[in-house]
C-alpha cells in the first residue's frame, strides 16, 4: 500500500525532475531504463531461484556445487548480478532453519528472487530478525521446534543468501518443473517451509 495521493504526486514529480536532469546530462537513457523496469517486472522473479532449488533436490552433484559455491553455479546459469557480489546458498535440514535479512537496507538476491517483498524492507523485520528470529518466524506462521537451530544470515552489498528449503514429503514422483512450482519466494528467504501443495 502506498502513501496518500498528494505524497505520491510529490514523489512522482521529484522522480521525473531528477530523471530529466540526468537524461539531459547524458547519464541515463530513458529507453534503457524502460528495459531495466521491463526486465525486473517480467523476466526476473522467484521462478529463477525455484529452478535452482528444485534441481538441487533431484541432482546431488548440483546440490553439492550449489552449497560449495553458489555464485559459480549462478554464473554458469548466466544469471546476472553476481559479477561483484557473492552468493551463498544455505540448506534447511530437519535440525537447522535458515533465515535471511538485510539489517542495513534491503540487500537481496534480486536476479534469483525478483524484487524484495515489502515485509523484507520493513524496519521491524530488519531489526528483529537478528535479535528474535524465532518470534519473527512465529508471527509469520512458522512455529519451529525448540530443537531446531535458527541461523540468521545478514546480507550485505558484498554477499547475498539463498535458502534451499527442504523438499516437501510426498513429492518423489514429481518432475523438476513440478517441484519448482512448489518453491515459494518466501521459502527461499526462510520465512516459510514448504508443503507438497505449495501453500501452507
Amino acid at each position: 500500500m502506498a502513501d496518500d495521493k498528494p505524497a505520491q504526486a510529490d514523489y512522482d514529480l521529484r522522480t521525473r525532475a531528477l530523471v530529466s536532469v540526468l537524461t539531459r546530462k547524458g547519464l541515463v537513457d530513458p529507453a534503457s531504463m524502460d528495459a531495466v523496469v521491463e526486465y525486473h517486472e517480467s523476466q526476473v522473479g522467484p521462478h529463477v531461484g525455484a529452478g535452482l532449488v528444485a534441481r538441487s533436490w533431484v541432482d546431488p552433484d548440483y546440490r553439492r556445487r550449489l552449497l560449495a559455491d553458489a555464485r559459480a553455479v549462478a554464473r554458469e546459469d548466466k544469471l546476472t548480478g553476481f559479477q561483484s557480489t557473492d552468493l551463498v546458498a544455505v540448506a534447511n535440514t530437519p535440525s537447522v532453519h535458515n533465515l535471511v535479512v538485510c539489517t542495513l537496507c534491503s540487500c537481496y538476491p534480486w536476479s534469483l528472487l525478483g524484487l524484495p517483498p515489502t515485509w523484507y524492507k520493513d524496519s521491524s523485520y530488519r531489526a528483529r530478525a537478528v535479535i528474535d528470529p524465532r518470534n519473527v518466524l512465529r508471527e509469520f506462521g512458522l512455529d519451529l521446534d525448540d530443537e531446531v537451530e535458527v541461523r540468521v544470515w545478514d546480507s550485505t552489498a558484498e554477499v547475498r543468501y539463498l535458502v534451499i528449503p527442504e523438499r516437501p514429503p510426498g513429492t518423489d514422483d514429481m518432475s523438476v518443473d513440478e517441484l519448482a512450482a512448489l518453491v515459494t519466494r518466501d521459502s527461499m528467504i526462510g520465512a516459510e517451509t514448504l508443503t507438497a501443495i505449495g501453500q501452507q
Binding site: 500500500m1 502506498a2 505520491q8 514523489y11 512522482d12 521529484r14 522522480t15 521525473r16 531528477l18 530523471v19 540526468l22 541515463v28 531504463m33 524502460d34 531495466v36 523496469v37 525486473h40 517486472e41 525478483g114 524484487l115 517483498p117 515489502t118 515485509w119 509469520f140 506462521g141 518466501d186 520465512a191 516459510e192
Partner: peptide, 19 residues
C-alpha cells in the same frame, strides 16, 4: 507476510529503481 504480489506500487518507484 501478507501483501499484494506486485513489483512496483507506483510508476515513479520503477523509475527511481531503474536509475
Amino acid at each position: 507476510r501478507d501483501e499484494a504480489d506486485q513489483t512496483f506500487a507506483e510508476p515513479w518507484q520503477a523509475q527511481a529503481f531503474a536509475v
